[in-house]
Design a protein around this nucleic acid. Structure first.
Lengths: 168, 168
DNA sequence: TGTGTCTTTCAATAAATTTTGAAACTTTAG
DNA sequence: CTAAAGTTTCAAAATTTATTGAAAGACACA
């Protein structure tokens, strides 16, 4: 396979994956482009590569920066801003986990806390099923939360090695 | 908090969570409703509870069945079909992981394999960065794949206990 | 076979999300 | 201060995705 073809396939695949994750296709494509680029790229270069508008680049790059996945880089002597992405997959994974924990898991835990103590007839089957189910989910979510914390503190090798030893 | 209020909050929260995961809001709301319902529900009951159309219920229930999260239940003597959801959060989590692995991780691994051997000048910085980044992602994805396999074979207690011991 | 009950399909419609592009804004340098 | 180079904003347009509802299909049973 030729380089250009492989590159386009990668950008395409990364974009498709992202849509299944609630991240916009364009944001993921920009990320993919920056990940495989040896040097930081300018807004113009991103526009050119992906055939998208300036406004679109600006918005999505801003969100990538917000996620902590991309940095603004100023080159001495240049007026333009450039952008570069973290390339280490383990660091990317941890950063995504950190953000998703904050954005998704923590709000859910908050709601679960609020709704776990309801007034009502404990003999009512509906109430009973509800409280039991909610407390089960709460326990599960708390475990997931702790697991992510372990992961965030771990090194890749240490984390996966420890984990994979469990398989034996 | 009253039961009805708590119930609506839960359905709402579950639906919001789902949209961040690429699952449609309605599908998640139906799931939430079935999870907290002591008995299987009919299409009519779901329509009524969530104020959505019959066609919508049918399509989303079908997809939940496809995900292995919901079962069709036939009550003896009743013409209608009823639906019930698995309530054990650990089983739900494993089922979701199983499906996402199949739908997302495996296709990505396939693409990564295809694009990891490119012809081209190995001294070209672009080519070098590309191959290095791709192989790093591949290794990461393979690790994630194995980790999910471990998880699928594990019991909740065993899995989290082993994992949390690592924290100390 | 005909009838009533329930399920499925899918084209039309509605809603939500993404993208564009031009105007407003900011910054740097002379 | 002014012009040039660049960045940001956001309302309108385009696109994508979800929902409806009516019609067609399936099934049980007399």
């Amino acid at each position: 396979m030729k380089f250009e073809e492989a590159k386009n396939q990668f950008i395409q695949a990364w974009g498709t994956l992202a849509t299944q994750w609630g991240i916009s296709r364009t944001m993921a494509q920009i990320h993919a482009l920056l990940i495989i680029s040896p040097d930081p790229l300018s807004a113009d270069e991103i526009m050119e590569e992906l055939s998208i508008s300036r406004g679109n680049v600006n918005m999505n790059v801003r969100e990538l920066i917000d996620w902590g996945l991309v940095d603004k880089v100023i080159k001495p002597g240049e007026r333009k801003e450039f952008f570069s992405a973290e390339k280490d997959p383990w660091k990317i994974t941890k950063q995504v986990a950190r953000e998703r924990k904050k954005r998704e898991l923590e709000p859910v835990l908050k709601v679960l806390d609020q709704i776990s103590n309801i007034e009502g007839d404990k003999k009512d089957k509906k109430v009973k099923t509800f409280t039991e189910t909610i407390s089960g989910i709460k326990r599960m979510a708390a475990n997931a939360d702790k697991t992510i914390e372990v992961m965030l503190k771990a090194e890749e090798n240490w984390f996966f090695n420890s984990l994979l030893k469990l398989l034996k």
